[in-house]
Structures are given as structure tokens and as C-alpha cells.
Amino acid sequence: MGALMHKPSLESQDDSLLVQGTLEGDPLCFEVLVERYQRRLFGLVRHYTRSAVEVEDIVQDTFLKAFSRLETFQQSSAFYTWLYRIAVNTILDFMKRQGRSPIRAVEDPEAMGGSMDETTERKSIRPDARLEQAEISEITRSVMDDLPEIFRTVLVMRELEQMRYQDIADVLQVSIGTVESRLFRARARFKKRLLQLHPEFAATQSNPSDEESKS
């Protein structure tokens, strides 16, 4: 990047130039990179822990790891995808360290899948119209806390972070087909657990032919 630049001019630079500047030893370049993505990482991490201190620690750890591995970053891929992958691994590592990983050793979530019995499948479950957004969010969170990590991660990425399948596949280093399959199973597991925890929101779906005969 040559001579050290001022922060305002750096803010308009793209990621690859900031990475290059960081590698050349300019702390401001890295600071701008952190500023650019810190909010998104805070948003991601808070889906995994309710503690603000832990969120800050995990995000900080993610950036420090990214810095120490910056030389391995391939400029051909998106910086954020690369950073996100480090963040997900840091989160999982943190949870493992805390003994809080929802992955059960005896359970192979991929194999178990999210199969539902017919009764569960036929039940519709929607948030009550009187619920505040914060209440819905809290219910959703409590259900997701119970899901195996492999399912929670795809749900967070897709449903809460609004990531495209391709980006999820890039972060998790799996195929798009695997993302689709995991999402399908994750949603099935989510619905099943939601029905178990909050049966009050369940409504049995009416038969389509009944609906047609009524109308």
C-alpha cells in the first residue's frame, strides 16, 4: 500500500487493499477492517451467547486470529467469508471450552436428521399476533439453544443473518446440496422442538380439499 494513509481515506478502500496494508504493518488498515465488520460479527456471535462480555471476547478473539493468519488469506475469496469462517470456528471452540456445546456425542445430527412424525408435520405453528418481536425472538432463541450445533449454525446464517446458500456453503466449506439438506433438517428439528416447548402456538392444518369445498 506504500506510505501510511489517513483513516478517512482508508475507509473507502476495498478489503484486499486493507489486508495488504495490514500485512505491510499499517495498524490503521487493520483497524478499518475491524470497524467494517465488527457490527456483523457482534450480531452473529450474540446468537450463541447471552453474555455481552462473552460476545465481545469472541469477536475480539476472531479478529486476533484473523490477524495472525492474514498471510494465509487468499485474495481470490471474499474477506468477509474468510473472517466469518474463523468466527464460526471461534464460537464453536469457545462453546466447547465452556462445555456448552449442544452437540451430543452420542448423536449424529446429520444421520438423525429432522424427521418428523406425520402429526408434527401436519401441525402448523405460528407466533401469536399479540407477541412482541422481542418475545418471539426469545422463544426462537430458547428453541435454537436446544438444537445440535450443526443445525443451529445453518439456521443462524440463513434465517437470522440472511446469508445466501452459496455464502453458507463457502463459510462451512460444504456443497450447496449439503446446505440445503442441513437447512431442511434444521427447520424440521426447530419445528419439532418448538411444538414440544410451546404447544400453545400449534394449529392443525386443515385439509386442502376441505378448504376448497368451503369456498
Binding site: G25, P27, L28, F30, E31, V32, V34, E35, Q38, R39, F42, G43, R46, H47, V55, E56, V59, Q60, D61, T62, F63, L64, K65, F67, S68, T90, D93, F94, R97, I125, R126, P127, Q133, A134, I136, S137, I139, T140, V143, L155, E159, L160, F190, L194
Partner: peptide
Amino acid sequence: QWFVAAPEVEVPTGFAAHVARRAFAGDVGL
């Protein structure tokens, strides 16, 4: 409909500068 947008997250003031300082000081995280 169960997946609603959560409120914006507050990032502590000076977080980026603090992280950059630590990174350049050789801190590699946990």
C-alpha cells in the same frame, strides 16, 4: 415468522482500535 430481526448490537466504543493495538502487539487470541 419465528425468525425475526434482533435489535442492533452495541459495539463498545474504541473496540476496533483496541483490537488493532492488541493484534500488532502480538496477541494471537486464545
